[in-house]
Write a protein that binds this DNA or RNA. Structure first.
Lengths: 250, 250
DNA sequence: CTGCAATGATGCACGACGTGCAAAGTGCTG
DNA sequence: CAGCACTTTGCACGTCGTGCATCATTGCAG
């Protein structure tokens, strides 16, 4: 399981956004039109540092015993700055869960256009899972933290909603403009969002079950079980919830 | 639209749980085994009073400008007591959204056993919507508050999760024990939860769209549009997301 | 290079929030 | 009635959240 394994509910204990040391990196002469300014990059780096510090502390000592002051100290910022980035510690802890989701949506966008929506989602999920096979202890601990801390649940669900937005937008583009063969009685936007929401819910459910089945072991759980269940749940959505076991035909 | 119209995202501005005046109600000689104790009834009444006060104040002046002290005063309790019931003001405001959901699940449970899962859900939704046809101004205001206040979203999603639990349990009972004809490649529990989560997501999405379409009007929105879209979305889940427009056959 | 505007970080103040604890009030049982 | 369980309450106090002004960094124009 990797950072990009599943949207939303998959935190990372490392950061792909390495905080930049001022002055230690060679600067391009002129930033390209789509390249973030230094301001923007520093801001993102600070945010990532805070997010990762929050998760580290929460894994180490539990969310309830983690204070914002500790997070700020760990990230080497002022407490006041913490609130420039997050509304509270739960949001910071959970923010790590969002890290891999952009890659998942990008993978979905790059699927061949002839694949059906749910087929493309299924493939994107499998690709994301296959990206790395290493399952680290720290990673499992973070997942378990998320699952075992009720106070994190609202923010986890909120993160899921943001990702639902992104996936729905990608699906809407895939379906194409209204008037096409697409969504039948539902409008395109509703259909896209329905696919996104249902798929993400399926992934959430499957991940939760998988983690539940591994609660008492320090060993990395069998990833192929998770992979198979995710695929089966998505296939079920494709084929129809009133038709259990039906081949999805997608 | 009524209290029981849709699960989770439908608040009420009145309370079906009338706070009891101590000493003004005749007591049965002995509480039955399933009848709540007075302790329990008082606790529930307090909770309902707080919840309703929170929603009233939030509708009146906005969530951000509503303090816990105001809510406590409005509900005539101590601030300390507020925290015996809710973790924060957002949870209190959103708690009203959960009021009608038990009735919806009960309606689902009472559907004829030969109906498919999604058919039973569809029928329960339609029954719940038809229970009352009056759409009050206060009610629409509450719905719009929920939609227009980002800080409420995590707690709204959390409420949805609780109701997903309840609906999934009901669905699992309906499906029957594992080993039956039921869920195919997915286990019974996963299938039940998948149905619950996807259905509730559909209702959430449809309600959101409906409210978006009524944002600029004080008039009650056309309820039959909401009814039709909810039914169409659930039918789509029944028939398969990769088969837009397919009759659901359920 | 200098000046200026924009932006993020920071210190500070202070009201609001969240929690533990003990006391008071209420309800139930024997 | 006494004892016990449960809910509410007052209080203390650390933590949190926000507004505001200042500082530091960055990017741009002249």
């Amino acid at each position: 399981m990797t950072e990009a394994a599943l949207p939303a509910v998959t935190p990372t204990t490392g950061t792909p956004e390495t905080p930049e040391e001022p002055g230690t990196r060679e600067e391009p002469e002129t930033p390209g039109p789509s390249e973030p300014s230094r301001h923007e990059r520093r801001k993102r780096a600070t945010r990532a540092a805070v997010r990762d510090a929050a998760l580290r502390l929460a894994v180490r000592q539990g969310v309830e015993r983690t204070t914002i002051e500790q997070i700020a100290a760990e990230a080497d910022i002022a407490v006041r700055t913490f609130f420039n980035h997050f509304s509270g510690k739960e949001e910071a802890v959970v923010a790590a869960a969002a890290v891999g989701a952009e890659a998942f949506v990008a993978e979905f966008r790059s699927r061949p256009p002839q694949e059906s929506v749910l087929r493309a989602i299924r493939e994107a999920v499998l690709v994301a899972m296959d990206r790395h096979d290493a399952v680290g202890r720290d990673h499992i601990r973070a997942l378990r933290l998320m699952r075992g801390t009720p106070s994190l649940m609202p923010q986890q669900m909120a993160v899921l909603t943001v990702q639902e937005d992104a996936l729905a937008a990608a699906i809407a583009e895939r379906i194409g403009p209204d008037g096409g063969p697409g969504p039948g009685r539902l409008g395109r936007a509703v259909h896209a969002r329905l696919c996104a929401a249902a798929s993400l819910a399926a992934l959430r459910i499957v991940l939760d079950r998988w983690l539940a089945g591994t609660a008492d072991s320090d060993d990395p759980p069998p990833l192929d079980v998770l992979r198979a269940e995710a695929d089966a749940a998505l296939a079920q959505l494709a084929a129809g919830l009133d038709h259990p076991g039906r081949p999805d035909g997608g």
